[in-house]
Design a binder for these strands. Structure first.
Lengths: 195, 195
DNA sequence: ATTATCTATAGATCTATAGATAATGC
DNA sequence: ATTATCTATAGATCTATAGATAATGC
């Protein structure tokens, strides 16, 4: 399990392919991107791509995972009893940071994300983290749990996804404003109402 | 523009291809579906498929449009001053009707829908219809318009989409219950609050 | 010697387009 | 005669896999 020459070589190649692929995706669009162009940039043979990534979609799947990581870290850094509003604002602040300059890849990444997460939900991903936070907030009486907490987490995260997709097509508005508005709408809607 | 023999022939072929494609998608999954298998079932040559549908995705795009139509009709049948809650319940009732028995195709259809609608929003589609309803509700003081009405319509519809995707993976619960819960959450969140 | 990483190659599948056929409109 | 629909074919791109090379562990 040591970090051998071979390990470093493999990761270096993989990283080159990863970056080359994102570059070609940005240039040609995900759909029209050719694996030949990717491997040309990365300086490896065509089939080396498939050794590292079963399909083009797996590159976006990795982008999804990589961008999710700092968000998970930020949420985990919050105290367990943090206000739910703070948790959600933290999530959106990081989403904004990660995605605001990646407009061209948002829709395809989200579309791929739909399928990937659908197939194999990450046990320690953002969904699970938020599910826990929602469950705690419900215990504390801050949240009306009309659905199972994991499903509410899905609804919230896919709502963020929706907001980003919607933002990606409507020019003009800033992403963080849209995400914040979606947060308020969600919190307002999910909050335990007085009546 | 008469309904000529040629027109009927073309539409018949197109319809056979459409149904054959959905059948193969259900059997093999969208991704692994082969055009050869589709045209074999439809009884036409391989390239006839591409004459009618530029890509496999266009079949799902058509499914999206076809399923949207009855929902639009149902909404348009409501009086202009109908309660927003009634409008949204009508939407979800029809979504449930259309999609509850099509679980296998939901995620891919929605993923395609993301890209299609992103590219060319339908002027008379559900988005536009709901945008109008939201704008009217805001005029009537029933809705707090934190965002432009079209964007709110996006957020709502993509929320429905999210709910269906989430439902498609969590076995057990009924679709209409999930959609109704999402409706309440949205309405509760978007309603003009007393404070 | 064995294994992991990458390359070369063959076959499968898709995409672009030239061509055939039959319906259409003049 | 012209055009729309569909077929046949060629070339592009992807996918599966056999093989080469060099690092690894014994």
């Amino acid at each position: 399990m040591a970090d051998t020459t071979r390990d470093r070589q493999r990761e270096a190649t993989r990283q080159r392919l990863y970056e080359a692929a994102l570059g070609i995706f940005r240039r040609d669009g995900f759909r029209d991107a050719r694996v030949d162009d990717i491997t040309l940039v990365a300086g490896v043979s065509r089939t080396a791509f498939y050794f590292h990534f079963p399909t083009k979609e797996d590159v976006l799947s990795e982008l999804m995972r990589r961008t999710e990581q700092p968000i998970c870290d930020a949420v985990m850094a919050l105290p367990q009893d943090a206000e739910l509003a703070l948790v959600l604002d933290t999530v959106t602040e990081w989403m904004n940071r990660v995605w605001q300059d990646e407009r061209a890849l948002i829709i395809d990444t989200m579309a791929v994300g739909l399928r990937i997460e659908a197939g194999s939900p990450q046990p320690n991903g953002l969904r699970a983290l938020l599910g826990n936070r929602f469950a705690r907030a419900a215990e504390g009486g801050m949240l009306s749990l009309s659905q199972r907490p994991e499903m509410l987490a899905d609804l919230y995260l896919l709502g963020c996804l929706s907001t980003m997709v919607s933002w990606a097509q409507h020019e003009g508005s800033s992403l963080i404003d849209s995400l914040t508005a979606a947060n308020r709408l969600f919190l307002n809607g999910a909050r335990k109402s007085p009546n």
